[in-house]
């Protein structure tokens, strides 16, 4: 307990005595984590946009015109296919009504057809664009299905775009994490380099490695955590007004962007946690390196 009190006191002492270097670490961590946060949010929005587009992709399966056909059984069969996210059945009458509604004033032309030519059909949704092709193949193999209609080119493009976007988002995220880590590590390194003599003296007068390292590690963790909080503040201050601006000028986009405040708050909490962990890991590595070089006798 006594040691803990001294360690905490030493940490405060480090922050106060070396406030310029501390401020440098705080600002650098804040800026880098803000960049990381913005990059990640951008990636998440791209992912979200594509997921929404993909989930709106529909495959229309028309059954054979056969009065003896057990529609419910066919429905269950389709439902059991692994690519199906959701589906809705339309009776011939429902389909005709829908068509008449779509055609508006020209709907009288449908009366010329006589009997309703539209069979039972299903509107099937998938989770990912790349699921459309195997689903279509599976539907075509079913004897109860007469025709399958879907926007083939759109599906292929969205599927390709989705794959590219996922990879780009992942690369952007990894690059941001690596760059942020390197910059924060080097800033802490610079900050501690000026205190290496101090570390050496502490060891010489009988302080253990843990006693020397802990205040430095706590200081690094704390500064990176506060840097992350600043970054979160910057993200929240920029993101929500940005969304409002989009809502006013491009309302269509609002539906495909991440607008849930809960998600953004949780994201910020994660960023703050990441910042603290990054600070802890970086300062631990830097202090360990210094102590190792000091404790190694010539």
């Amino acid at each position: 307990m006594t040691a803990l009190k001294y360690i905490l006191r030493d940490m405060v002492r480090l922050v106060v005595h070396h406030w310029v270097l501390g401020l440098l670490t705080l600002i650098t961590a804040g800026v880098m984590l803000w960049i990381l946060g913005v990059t990640t949010l951008l990636s998440l929005n791209i992912e979200n946009m594509l997921t929404k587009l993909e989930s709106e992709l529909a495959v229309q399966a028309y059954l054979v015109k056969d009065n003896t056909l057990d529609v419910e059984a066919v429905s269950k069969k389709i439902q059991s296919l692994e690519y199906v996210a959701s589906m809705k059945a339309f009776s011939p009458a429902d389909s005709l009504a829908k068509l008449q509604e779509k055609m508006g004033s020209q709907s009288r032309a449908l009366e010329m057809l006589g009997d309703n030519p539209i069979p039972w059909n299903f509107e099937i949704h998938v989770n990912r664009a790349e699921d459309v092709a195997p689903l279509v193949n599976a539907l075509k193999e079913m004897p109860e299905v007469e025709d399958v209609v879907y926007a083939g080119m759109v599906v292929r493009r969205i599927s390709a775009l989705s794959r590219i976007a996922s990879r780009v988002a992942m690369i952007m995220f990894i690059l941001s994490v690596v760059i942020t880590s390197l910059v924060v590590y080097n800033t802490i390194h610079i900050s501690l380099y000026s205190r290496r003599e101090e570390i050496g003296i502490m060891y010489l007068v009988g302080a253990t490695r843990a006693y020397i390292a802990t205040p430095f590690v706590l200081e690094g963790t704390l500064l990176a955590f506060f840097g992350a909080l600043i970054a979160c503040g910057g993200i929240i201050a920029a993101y929500f007004p940005g969304i409002e601006l989009i809502r006013e000028n491009l309302p269509l986009l609002t539906n495909i962007l991440l607008t849930d405040r809960g998600i953004i708050w949780r994201f910020c909490a994660l960023l703050a946690g990441f910042g603290a962990t990054l600070g802890w890991v970086c300062s631990y590595l830097v202090v360990s390196r210094f102590i190792n070089s000091i404790t190694r006798p010539e």
Binding site: T2, A3, Y6, R13, E198, I201, M202, T208
Partner: peptide, 24 residues
């Protein structure tokens, strides 16, 4: 001398005992 530059005379001397967790 090898004194810790950021600490006062008192703190430099107290440090060696604090590192041993001697009560305040």
């Amino acid at each position: 001398f090898r004194l810790i530059p950021s600490l006062t005379v008192y703190e430099n001397i107290a440090f060696v005992m604090e590192a041993m967790s001697v009560p305040k």
